[in-house]
Amino acid sequence: MNLKGTLPTLILEVLAQEPSHGYRIAQKIKQSSDGLLDFKEGTLYPALHKLENEGSVESYEGIENGRARRYYRITPTGRKALNDDRAEWQQLSRAVSMILGEA
């Protein structure tokens, strides 16, 4: 399924639960959607950099299984953006459901 434009919101949603690294973020998005939202993982990091530039997430070095990993965590700005995106998505989803339900 195409998730163009929604990837940053999905990333923020995953990071709102706990700080995570790129691979785990990708897996969580895929697992949470039962594999419906499938995307190429090479495009995950540009989205993470964009969020970092906007101040929505921040990154830090962490260790997992003895290996250095770059972790990302959500910032207060990111939480606000996520709440706005959630509200917008619910409105849009309701509107589309109303139209499709009537058809």
Binding site: A26, F39, K40, E41, G42, T43, Y45, P46, A47, H49, K50, N53
Partner: peptide, 17 residues
């Protein structure tokens, strides 16, 4: 395969880095 097309990734990287 999971990484996808490098050209697409390059286009997106150039927008943010």
């Amino acid at each position: 395969k999971a990484l996808g097309d490098p050209h697409v990734a390059n286009r997106q990287y150039r927008k943010v880095l």
